[in-house]
Design a protein around this nucleic acid. Structure first.
Lengths: 248, 248
DNA sequence: CGGGTAGTTGACGAGGGTCAAACTATGTGG
DNA sequence: CCACATAGTTTGACCCTCGTCAACTACCCG
């Protein structure tokens, strides 16, 4: 047990830079220590490696420490459908609780480290620490709200709005953990963006190119800089109106 | 408190026909009794009445006892986006936990009765009854999985597949609670179906009409009968292939 | 009986998917 | 370090699905 504290993977919740965003939010110091004791740090995943596979027995949820994870499921036709991208401090795997089996696969988009949190331990601990239990409920509740926003996006929005929403969403997530909100690196490919947003690769490429020529963003491969937040926001908020303004 | 037991709304979890599907699953009899004591039965909602509104303070989750509830949010453009339909035994309102505010509105599609479950009580009780806590986690986990399936549907499927998925999904839900899987009543309008699935009303109408002329279903207003489950299933599973078969 | 809402059907066009080809990165092994 | 293979990206051309607009019908309720 204590051996891991002497390894190179010893980062603890207490001194983890993500603790203000991650599961430990709103926990007392002593409670964080107890949480910390059930968490295992895994050795880094290389790009393309699986964290877990659809159908695997569910036993843990994971917090991303660095890198990015994508989750996806394989449809009956064998094609992959991406259901989410997970950045540092974000928790994944919660959808496995229901059936005791992960309903999705999770794969690293780049070199990625995660904290593994065995769920039975977490559940036990949550009985003893009410604020942890509440925190878990909140996290799952937020996931439900977020997914519903995503449903709106997929069902109602056009390609421009989808891409703008996607970029601003990433921007917010980077900002929240102290990185630049305007300039960042897309760890996923255009194909993966398209898959996630329900668009063809070509459409993603075309829209991003058009955003660039309209001065909304500056793109260089996977590097992206958002130049005009205002206009991007408008694209999301008021599509029809915005379209007209943009066309004048 | 005990007065409600003498009212006309006294149905209790113990003798509720939905207990095998609803929150009480997997609870011991005495635990069901304790759960039962925090649940309030509300007087029926008439068609069009709100159960709660987007922005209202969150304090309860609700189980539908009879009727149907739709949840939706109002977009920045003022249009409504339906995020779900809730049938008897299904729980709604969980998305309010995160912000202590309902992020969606809930409205009755027909005369509907619900059980109100004050969340703070439920959370307290869940500390004392581990299986109830687990049940709650499972419910939220399932919601997350289901929503992800919905995201796949919205992002990847065409109009035929969307409608077929929707109808089979309803069919399964009716079957699960002992009603006919093949013949039921759509409590929502065509417009609401379209809104939910990201389709125009006209498309919904056309697809359903075409399903009927292809012998997949029989429709009479809101009454629908699924005639060919096999073909419907194929529509969902293997779109391209299926299309070709249907066109021969 | 008239007016309002919900549903159906047709005509048309735009948005975005598909196919194809060129171009650019990123490896990988000799 | 270069040649080649492979994957990812961009761009153009074409076409299909589905949204929009409009007219018409059916139905419900006062």
């Amino acid at each position: 047990m204590s051996s891991r504290f002497s390894s190179t993977l010893t980062a603890q919740c207490q001194n983890c830079s993500l603790s203000a965003l991650c599961l430990p939010i709103a926990l007392a110091d002593e409670d964080i220590t107890r949480l910390d004791q059930i968490i295992e740090r895994k050795k880094p995943l290389k790009k393309g490696e699986f964290l877990f596979r659809q159908g695997d027995a569910f036993d843990s949820v994971f917090a991303v420490r660095s890198g990015t994870i994508k989750t996806f499921n394989i449809t009956s036709l064998g094609e992959e459908q991406i259901t989410g991208f997970y950045c540092p401090s974000e928790l994944l795997g919660l959808s496995g609780i229901d059936t005791n089996t992960y309903p999705i696969s999770a794969k690293a988009l780049e070199t990625t480290t995660v904290c593994e949190i065995p769920f039975t331990h977490l559940e036990e601990l949550s009985s003893q620490i009410p604020s942890l239990k509440h925190q878990l409920f909140k996290l799952m509740s937020r996931k439900i709200s977020d997914d519903q926003q995503m449903m709106v996006l997929l069902g109602k929005k056009n390609a421009d709005e989808k891409i703008a929403s996607f970029l601003l969403n990433l921007s917010n997530r980077f900002k929240k953990r102290g990185y630049s909100a305007s300039s960042f690196r897309l760890s996923m490919s255009r194909g993966e963006i398209g898959n996630y947003l329900g668009l063809a690769v070509e459409t993603v490429s075309r829209v991003i190119t058009r955003f660039q020529s309209n001065g909304l963003v500056h793109v260089d491969g996977k590097e992206i800089e958002i130049l005009d937040f205002n206009e991007m926001q408008k694209l999301i908020g008021a599509p029809a109106v915005c379209d007209k303004i943009a066309c004048i």
